[in-house]
Design a protein around this nucleic acid. Structure first.
Length: 555
RNA sequence: UGGGGAAUAGUGUAACGGUAGCACGAAUGACUCUGAAUCAUUUAGUCAAGGUUCGAAUCCUUGUUCCCCAGCCA
C-alpha cells in the first residue's frame, strides 16, 4: 500500500499530494484495531512530504451517534500522538452539498424515489444466486422524482415510507449494485445538525462524497468494503467529481481478545468488565488506563504491517513492543506484592539509613533516589522457600543473597505460625556489603527487591491476565458464545502490597517498573479512593516462572 | 450452485523472474546488583498438482482451503 502511494506520488497522479483520512463513526470507543487504521492513515501522510491526514467523523446515522463518542475519539487519536491540525471534519457538514449532488443524479436519470417498504426492498433485491427485479417505481419521471425527493427532505413523509435509490442494475452479481439506497427518511435529531434534516445519506452514498469534497487522494478502508468499491467508483464517476482511490486492508485480530464493537459493547453492557476503560479491554482508553504507552502501540502497528489476509496477531507481539518501550522509559522502584517480613537480627534496633538507588539503568539522566532501610523489611513471599528446589536460587535457610542497592543477607532462621507457614524470616547482614557490593568479590546467586517495613506505603495492586482463556474467544461450544470463554481469573486484586515511599504522591497514569516484577501504572481510582492503586501493565519476562511451569508439566 | 478477495516457519510480515530475509515466539549459551534488559547460536516456511523458463513464492492452468457480500448500519 505504501508502494502505491509512493508510486502515485512519483507519477504525479495527484499532483504530488497525499491526503488520507481516518473516518470513524462516533458510535463507540476506539480500540487497538482502530489504532492500526489510525497509524496507517496518519503514518502514510507523515511519510510523504506535505502529506496530510484528516480526522473526519462519518456521522450519517443519528440513531447511533453521540457527542460523547466524538470527544473520546478525539482524545484517543490525540493521545496516540497524531495531529490533524485544522482538519477536523464532520460528514454531516456536507449534508447540503450531498443533497445537491443527489438532485444532480436524479436529473441525470441515475436515481429515483422508491416507495417500497424495507421488507419489499429486500425481496426485490434477489439473493446471492438469483437476480433481483426492478422496483415498480424505477421508471418514474425526473420531474416526479425531483418533486418527491424535495418533499422527502421537507418532512412530508413518515420514516421508512420512501427512499432515494441509485438506478444501476437489479441483476448485478454484486448485491451492492442492485439499486442501492442513497437516502432514507429518519425523523431523528442529529448530534450536530439537530432537526435540520429528516433524510440521512447511506454510507455508500456519503463516504465517497466526503472523500471527494475533502480532496482525499487515498481512501483506505477495511476489507469488507471491497465489495463496495464498484459503487464508490460509480457514484463519483456519475457525478464527474474528484475521485480518490479506495484501497482495502485487513482489520486487526488479536489472540485472547475480541475486537468487534458489538462484542465489546456486550462486555460493557452486561457488566462482564468494568466499563469501556477497564484495563482488560482492548480499547484505547482501556490500554491507556492499563499503562500502555502511545509509542508502544504505534511501534506495534507499524510492525504488524498491512495485508489483505484476515490473520490473527499474537498478543505477545504487542507485549513485546510494550516492554521494549517501557523498559527504556520507566523509572524503577521497589514494591512488594505479597510481603514476607524479614528481620535483620544483627542490625541495630531503631537504626535506619537511606541508600542510593538508580532510577533507570537504561537512562543515566534519570538519576538516583534514596530508599530507606532498617532492621525490619518485607521481601516477596515468592523469593523465599524453606526447601529450595534445584534451580531456585533465591533466599533459603543458610543461603546468602543480595538485597538490591542494600546489603548481602544470610538467612539464619524462620518463624512459623500454628499452621506451619513461614511468617517471618530471620537473617544477618554483612555491613561491609553496603550498597550491594562485596569488597572481597564474593558472588551471590540472586538479588532481591525489598521495602522498609516501617516506611513503605500500603498499596493495592491489580494483576491482569487475558480477558479470555482461548486464543480465539469465538471458538465456543455449540450453543454458547464468546462470553463462555471469559477468563474468570483475568483480574486479581492484591490489597496488602507495600511500595517504597518515593511513590507517595504518584499521580494517575504514572508508569513505573516494580523491579523484578513488571511495569505498573497508577490507576485513576487512586484519587477517588485516596489510596495508592496500581495496575499491572505487563509483567517482566519471567524465566523462573517458565522453569516452574515446565517442572509442573513434567509431573 | 452468484460475485468480490486472499493463501510464505507456530504467529505476523518482506522478497515484484535470479542466494526465501526480518520480527515475535520457542530452545541453548554468555553476561548480569532486576531469573529483566543486552549479546550470540539454533529451530522452522512458499496451499496442492501440473506447465512456461537456464532459473518460479513471483508468470500460466487446474484444484484445495479461508474471508467478505442478500441493513432503509458503517
Amino acid at each position: 500500500m505504501r508502494t502505491i502511494v509512493a508510486e502515485d506520488n512519483a507519477s504525479g497522479k495527484w499532483q504530488g499530494r497525499v491526503n488520507t483520512r481516518f473516518p470513524p463513526e462516533p458510535n463507540g470507543y476506539l480500540h487497538i484495531g482502530h489504532a492500526k487504521s489510525i497509524c496507517l492513515n496518519f503514518g502514510i501522510a507523515a511519510e510523504n512530504p506535505g502529506g496530510k491526514c484528516n480526522l473526519r467523523f462519518d456521522d450519517t446515522n443519528p440513531c447511533k451517534e453521540e457527542q460523547e463518542f466524538v470527544d473520546s475519539i478525539i482524545a484517543d487519536v490525540k493521545w496516540l500522538g497524531w495531529d490533524w491540525q485544522d482538519r477536523l471534519y464532520f460528514g454531516s457538514d456536507y449534508f447540503g452539498q450531498m443533497y445537491e449532488y443527489a438532485v444532480q443524479l436524479v436529473k441525470a436519470g441515475c436515481a429515483y424515489v422508491c416507495d417500497l417498504t424495507a421488507e419489499e426492498t429486500r425481496q426485490y433485491r434477489g439473493t446471492l444466486t438469483a437476480p433481483g427485479k426492478d422496483s415498480p417505481f424505477r421508471s418514474r419521471t425526473v420531474e416526479e422524482n425531483l418533486d418527491l425527493l424535495a418533499r422527502m427532505k421537507n418532512g412530508e413523509f413518515p420514516d421508512g415510507s420512501r427512499t432515494l435509490r441509485a438506478k444501476i442494475d437489479m441483476a448485478h452479481p454484486n448485491l451492492n449494485m442492485r439499486d442501492p439506497v442513497m437516502y432514507r427518511i429518519l425523523h431523528e435529531s442529529h448530534h450536530r445538525t439537530g432537526d435540520e434534516w429528516c433524510i440521512y445519506p447511506m454510507y455508500d452514498w456519503a463516504h465517497g462524497l466526503e472523500d471527494s469534497i475533502e480532496g482525499i487522494t487515498h481512501s483506505i478502508c477495511t476489507l469488507e468494503f471491497e465489495n463496495h468499491r464498484p459503487l464508490y467508483d460509480w457514484f463519483l464517476d456519475q457525478l464527474g467529481i474528484h475521485h480518490p482511490q479506495q484501497i482495502e486492508f485487513a482489520r486487526l485480530n488479536l489472540t485472547y481478545t475480541v475486537m468487534s464493537k458489538r462484542k465489546l459493547f456486550r462486555l460493557v453492557a452486561e457488566g462482564l468488565v468494568d466499563g469501556w476503560d477497564d484495563p482488560r479491554m482492548p480499547t484505547i482508553c482501556g490500554l491507556r488506563r492499563r499503562g500502555y504507552s502511545p509509542a508502544a502501540i504505534r511501534n506495534f502497528c507499524r510492525r504488524i504491517g498491512i495485508n489483505k489476509f484476515p490473520g490473527t496477531v499474537e498478543i505477545a507481539l504487542l507485549e513485546h513492543y510494550l516492554r521494549q518501550d517501557l523498559n527504556k522509559h520507566s523509572a524503577r522502584v521497589m514494591a512488594v506484592l505479597k510481603p514476607l517480613k524479614i528481620v535483620i537480627t544483627n542490625y541495630p534496633e531503631g537504626q535506619s539509613e537511606e541508600l542510593d538507588a538508580i532510577n533507570n539503568p537504561e537512562d543515566p539522566a534519570a538519576g538516583i533516589r534514596k530508599v530507606p532501610f532498617s532492621r525490619e523489611l518485607y521481601i516477596e513471599q515468592d523469593d523465599f522457600m524453606e526447601e529450595a528446589p534445584k534451580k531456585f536460587y533465591r533466599l533459603t535457610p543458610g543461603r546468602e543473597v543480595r538485597l538490591r542497592y542494600a546489603y548481602f543477607i544470610t538467612c539464619t532462621d524462620v518463624v512459623k505460625n500454628d499452621q506451619g507457614n513461614v511468617v517471618e524470616v530471620r537473617c544477618t547482614y554483612d555491613p561491609a556489603t553496603k550498597g550491594g557490593d562485596s569488597p572481597d568479590g564474593r558472588k551471590v546467586k540472586s538479588t532481591l527487591h525489598w521495602v522498609c517495613a516501617e516506611k513503605s506505603l500500603p498499596a493495592e495492586v491489580r494483576l491482569y491476565d487475558n480477558l479470555f482463556t482461548k486464543e480465539n474467544p469465538d471458538n465456543a461450544e455449540k450453543g454458547k458464545d464468546f462470553t463462555a470463554n471469559l477468563n474468570p481469573d483475568s483480574l486479581q486484586t492484591l490489597t496488602n502490597c507495600r511500595v517504597e515511599p518515593s511513590l507517595a504522591d504518584a499521580k494517575p497514569l504514572t508508569r513505573v517498573q516494580f523491579e523484578r516484577l513488571g511495569y505498573f501504572c497508577v490507576d485513576a481510582d487512586t484519587e477517588k479512593q485516596d489510596k495508592l492503586i496500581f495496575n499491572c501493565t505487563v509483567t517482566l519476562r519471567d524465566t523462573w516462572a517458565r522453569i516452574q511451569k515446565k517442572a509442573q508439566q513434567k509431573k
